[in-house]
């Protein structure tokens, strides 16, 4: 039973962070700041969904002892690793692409990448 209370707690955390991720898309002024909210909050929230599924499977496994809950645990862990790697890398790719396409960060106090590009030093 304790496992299922943990499942509900993890799901509540995930809903909170996922909705923050969705709100940040509307609240922040430009692509880079939106990426912050969209990447970090949704990755964390979805990892908590995976954690909740794993906890649920462990609870059912202790109750019934069926092997298929082992399968559920393994596959959910694989999905979690895939999410962790692909989300961070995808955010990096979008950020780099939008900077190279000439999109300046809004309200920025400093932009070292622009400075080094215009000096002809870094990138490309």
């Amino acid at each position: 039973m304790a496992f299922f209370i943990l499942v509900i707690a993890a799901l509540l955390v995930s809903v909170f962070f996922n909705s923050l991720g969705a709100v940040s898309l509307y609240r922040f002024p430009d692509v880079y700041t939106r990426l912050h909210g969209a990447t970090k909050c949704t990755t964390f929230g979805t990892i908590f969904i995976a954690v909740a599924v794993v906890l649920y499977a462990v609870g059912r496994l202790l109750e019934s002892g069926e092997n298929r809950f082992w399968v559920l645990i393994i596959h959910t862990l694989v999905a979690m690793m895939v999410l962790l790697v692909t989300n961070a890398t995808g955010a990096h790719a979008i950020a780099r692409a939008s900077h190279r396409s000439g999109l300046a960060p809004a309200k920025a106090v400093v932009d070292r990448l622009e400075e080094s590009c215009s000096r002809g030093g870094a990138s490309q």
Binding site: F17, L20, V23, S24, R27, F28, D30, Y32, T33, H36, G37, K40, C41, F44, P105, A106, K107, A108, V109, V110, D111, R112, L113, E114
Partner: peptide, 18 residues
């Protein structure tokens, strides 16, 4: 990171830069 970003999303206090 998430608690930090959550605070920034709610209060809207940012000072971005690269």
């Amino acid at each position: 990171a998430n608690i930090d970003v959550a605070k920034r999303v709610i209060t809207g206090k940012i000072r971005p830069g690269i």
